[in-house]
Design a protein around this nucleic acid. Sequence first.
DNA 1: CTGAAAGCGCTTACAG
DNA 2: CTGAAAGCGCTTACAG
Lengths: 344, 344
Amino acid sequence: MKGISIKDIAKQAGVSPTTVSFVLNGKAKEKRISDQVSKKIMKLAAKLKYKPNQLARGLRTGKTKTIGLIVEDIANNFFANVAKIVEEEADKFGYKVLYGSTEDNLIKARGLLEVLEYRQVDGYIITPTPNLDKEIEMLKHARKPMVLMDRYLPQIPTNYVMVNNFQGAYDAAEYLLKLGYGKIALVTTTSEQIQMKERLNGFTAAMKAHRATFPRKFLKKIPFAATKDEAVSQIKTFIETNPDLDAIFFSTNYLGVYGIECFKDLGIKIGDDIAMVSFDDHDLFRLHTPGITCVAQPIHDIARNLIQVLMAELNQNSHQINQVVLPATLIKRESCKKRKNAAV
Amino acid sequence: MKGISIKDIAKQAGVSPTTVSFVLNGKAKEKRISDQVSKKIMKLAAKLKYKPNQLARGLRTGKTKTIGLIVEDIANNFFANVAKIVEEEADKFGYKVLYGSTEDNLIKARGLLEVLEYRQVDGYIITPTPNLDKEIEMLKHARKPMVLMDRYLPQIPTNYVMVNNFQGAYDAAEYLLKLGYGKIALVTTTSEQIQMKERLNGFTAAMKAHRATFPRKFLKKIPFAATKDEAVSQIKTFIETNPDLDAIFFSTNYLGVYGIECFKDLGIKIGDDIAMVSFDDHDLFRLHTPGITCVAQPIHDIARNLIQVLMAELNQNSHQINQVVLPATLIKRESCKKRKNAAV
DNA sequence: CTGAAAGCGCTTACAG
DNA sequence: CTGAAAGCGCTTACAG
């Protein structure tokens, strides 16, 4: 099953492999190959369905036209959607995508980075796990084209593309307050990562700005490593021990999904008994009865910007750092209602 | 940023690249390299963090240790979940995954196959689109390791891994009948693909076996190419023009999701006003109130079998054809209730 | 027990 | 206007 090589074309055209290579790489003009020869080669290549061997080319040029995409969990709605568009956008530039999921686990992330290096990817799109600093630093030092997504490492200046987590959480909290809710809990993860901190900060900033109280007991942190059952049970206990809550903000889509499950199990009616908002949109939030108000990320924009920034690095050695922060959108649904004492 | 090559190790160890290659490929014994030399090389390789250049190796051996995964839509729950496990399983064998989404579009599928060939993948996992016969035939003829998933092409004997679509649909229809539902509609796609046919066949076989009537007007086919809005509007019209329906079976997860949206918009209470079952499980089905009864696919098993079959092809030239059909599981939730006239 | 050499399929600096 | 040759980093048949 040998393919057609440049040599085969050269032989049939009666020219050298060099000439064929020039023509096929669009350097005919530059190398002043005659139109006649040029055309003959093009025709032959088309006829023989010549496909350049990417391995050979890569070995020679050092470029594989492949980018590595490291996400937290490819089965998660948000990452799957970003990955899909990343792949489409990359394709427009002739790049293919190798991907992997870290589960937010440092060891897995290291393993993935090693494999990608091994595979000679030209550039990286990385959702960093905690403590990945050293590895990111090394990539940066090696001047590898790289963009971080969903979060960044505050200690290391790098390219990144993110949603405005602070603003998203702020808007959600403010919205709840304006509707008249006063005892609002935040359910988030124990993660110390920047995106989670920002959501917490945005939330508390809104509370402060509106002079609302946010007692420590209204903040619940669930370990990322907790299994689904553990997380659900912790959230249930939290809800049961705080019966006076009138609203809960969940800081990620999966926590929001768990939250719905908790309310369902506990027989609590969302919207009537308690209000809820979640970060990230999800089919479930849209189609749930009642619909779940959420802070949606601009998935298309995120993916497009990721590729744009990466391509800029890949093509010119732009050593300028690109940090893109995109606005979050509050999508209002029936899980939050105007209360009698509403301000607005 | 040059990496460490076999030459560097050879130089430092004072041996030839050949010897280094033998040792690093575990052929020390076979080639009768002295233990002393062998150990020295291993140590050196570890110390220098030698990583074989996969391109060079691939160019020489013709193997890239990469498999191509073609799905219908990586952002779809089912495919994203399969993809994730495929990636994990492939990793265990040292393989990486290149993926792409066809949107069930022949042109896109051709493009993807071309890129994968170009990239020299060692094997293929393919969700075939309609009319992809010629391309599959060519891969088969070229003896490329290949497994089909989710569906197969009846005219071409190939490896495949699938859920038992007939049984899944049969069980769902039978379940509805036993609960006492009598006017059951099937909402499916216009696709003539085998998995859809089988679901239709399973459904009608159950109706027949139980002597239930299934008038033509209770069968609604939605074009796969329809946008979400178009599909939702068609389903709505269908529901409105058939007010006597007491249950609907949706033949894919996305149709089920649309169905929920329709019921919601029309103010129809699932479970009370009408029963529903969908093929495929989904967070939304699990957490919806009421929960949606569904026919779940064994995602882990599917992914594991895909890799297993592919690896068998890749490693020995097993020219035996593997066709794996895995059982579907009916998950009962509150969207279907026992009716007064129930048989059981 | 070990090594020199060819070759995988390209690209490109150099030469004419 | 075109080509011979080197080299990317490996593997492996051949030789000793």
